[in-house]
Write a protein that binds this DNA or RNA. Structure first.
Lengths: 188, 188
DNA sequence: ATCATTATTTGACCTAAGTCAAATTTCTTG
DNA sequence: CAAGAAATTTGACTTAGGTCAAATAATGAT
């Protein structure tokens, strides 16, 4: 799976100048402050956010409680996948957990660019495939691992999450309560 | 989400003859008997299977127990997504639950065809997007719904599943035991 | 139809994780 | 640095769903 990110990065590196220039011409940088919302519930996700620096998350509300569904670090691409794909209202929020700098690409401009530059279409496919596999793997973990095992998985594979993100957020990301996470940590 | 299937179907209907012919030339029909495995664990998923008739499922083994991850009916596309995408060993099996007829397309041939016919590339993107949204929605349900609610969801949105699939399989698809599913059904 | 599988239900008990409440610890910010 | 706020831990108790075992259906092959 990590190797697929490498594949994507290599693909980007190998893009011809024309395609690259076209892509850069529809992207622009922007800064957000800690706590800012890049996307709100019920908005249509009309932009993609490539994290240049900082940390962000995606979450939704479930009877008033925030359930985090994805954490973003440098080089991660933040979007509400189904809102972006269908151009329908998002059930998710995207929030800056620290000050962040992002490279923004507009949905519409990217759609247009894809028709002119087939390599961007291939890139889009690779990104969609990566996301599909990522979610599939997450579902797999919910299906087969206990809360403790899921936490250990994060601890092993994504230690930066445990080091930088408040436990409340990690707990909801793992699908458990804050108290349970605290007890898991006390035990291991 | 259903509307996205419509969009994909409309896109296919609107394909030019050349693209369509190219696609058909790399696809062929095949029949399997109930119980046959279209894909085994540790094999590389080198083909996609479009169900023409019959029912199939995808599952994996977790300490010897079969966990069903997807159910396929007419017009559904059966593949092990990550094995197909990465061309790596599959952790999942694909099994015919009834006699089935499928239209098989080889991975390699499709990859080649995509470079010649960009519309197939767009089609592939749409299929990947659809799968991504489908898994995302399933994960969402695991994250927020109780076992009973997940069962009711199936009962409402996919009654054909309850009508045709053995409870053992439905239970594992819902991430619960057979006994719990039986009790849920007795209560409602 | 009958016997043998296979599928489903029911019972008794167990356990992982949730809930609610209170106590600490750790950050912030004046 | 101190006071307040936020984050985390701990305690007592509840509950959804799991486990193991046995009892009934329901199906299918002869």
């Amino acid at each position: 799976m990590t190797s697929y990110i490498d594949k994507i990065n290599n693909y980007i590196k190998a893009l011809d100048n024309e395609t690259l220039t076209a892509f850069q011409s529809i992207s622009s940088d922007k800064k957000y402050k800690k706590g800012d919302l890049l996307l709100r519930q019920n908005e249509i996700c009309g932009k993609s956010y490539l994290l240049i620096s900082g940390i962000a998350r995606k979450y939704y509300l479930n009877d008033g409680k925030e359930i985090t569904t994805e954490l973003y670090f440098e080089n991660d691409l933040a979007v509400s996948f189904s809102s972006y794909t269908l151009q329908q209202q998002s059930r998710e929020f995207i929030e800056a957990l620290t000050d962040v700098t992002v490279s923004i690409t507009h949905y519409k401009a990217f759609q247009d660019a894809k028709t002119k530059y087939p390599k961007l279409l291939t890139l889009d496919l690779m990104l969609a495939e990566y996301y599909g596999m990522w979610v599939e793997n997450r579902l797999f973990q919910f299906h087969t691992l206990t809360a403790t095992e899921r936490y250990l998985e994060i601890l092993n594979k994504s230690p930066h999450i445990v080091q930088t993100i408040p436990l409340t957020i990690i707990a909801s990301y793992l699908g458990i309560t804050l108290e349970t996470l605290s007890r898991i940590r006390a035990k291991i």
